[in-house]
């Protein structure tokens, strides 16, 4: 993941550091908060690599950064290359479940349900964000959608895990595995 490239891309128009941070957060729907220090560190590295250059100051005396020619090439290259599919994002969950299946004292079903409830609450959170207007502009909407789809995928995967666990339980045990938690609230 490249905050570096994202900031670089936002420098199509000359900006000063604080403005750059605000722009990033607005576009991505405040999903990945950045601190100003991080922004300036990144900018200095970019300047070192010859991708940006300091381009004067604005009316209030803040120094503006702008893309160099090399920076432009770098941004184009970034957009032209698909994001590489690396390891699943939530390795930890996958590992947790894999281990839970192997450890007899753990109720895997409960692990799944807890995780699913948590993810569903996250999903509901995204919904609330959307309804409160966070996703009203296109860029923010797209980022929010990304999160919704990811959470949805995770819940589906957890549903699927649950089904497989139940099937596995039925095929080993004579009685169908009763849910550990039942009834209304």
């Amino acid at each position: 993941m490249s905050v570096k490239h994202a900031l670089l891309a936002l420098l199509e128009k000359p900006r000063y550091g604080y403005e750059l941070r605000a722009e990033f957060e607005q576009r991505t729907g405040a999903s990945w908060p950045l601190n100003v220090g991080q922004v300036y560190t990144t900018l200095s590295r970019l300047e070192r690599d010859g991708l940006v250059e300091a381009g004067g100051t604005d009316a209030e005396g803040r120094s503006l950064y702008q893309l160099t020619e090399a920076g432009r090439v770098e941004v184009k290259g970034w957009f032209d290359t698909p994001v590489e599919r690396t390891q699943p994002q939530r390795d930890e969950l996958a590992i947790k479940l894999a281990v839970a299946v192997a450890v007899p004292s753990v109720d895997v079903g409960k692990v799944v349900q807890q995780q699913r409830n948590a993810t569903m609450q996250a999903l509901q959170g995204y919904r609330r964000q959307a309804r409160s207007g966070a996703g009203d502009d296109l860029a923010g909407g797209l980022v929010l959608d990304r999160l919704v789809f990811a959470a949805e995928a995770e819940i589906r995967w957890l549903d699927h895990c649950e089904s497989r666990l139940r099937r596995a339980a039925t095929s080993t045990a004579p009685e169908p595995a009763e849910p550990t938690e039942g009834g209304p609230r």
Binding site: Q113, R116, N117, M120, Q121, Q124, P179, E181, G182, G183, P184, R185
Partner: peptide, 13 residues
């Protein structure tokens, strides 16, 4: 709901 039973619930009360 699963097999005619409520098995879980998520969200605020």
């Amino acid at each position: 709901v699963r097999d005619g039973l409520v098995v879980d619930e998520a969200g605020e009360t």
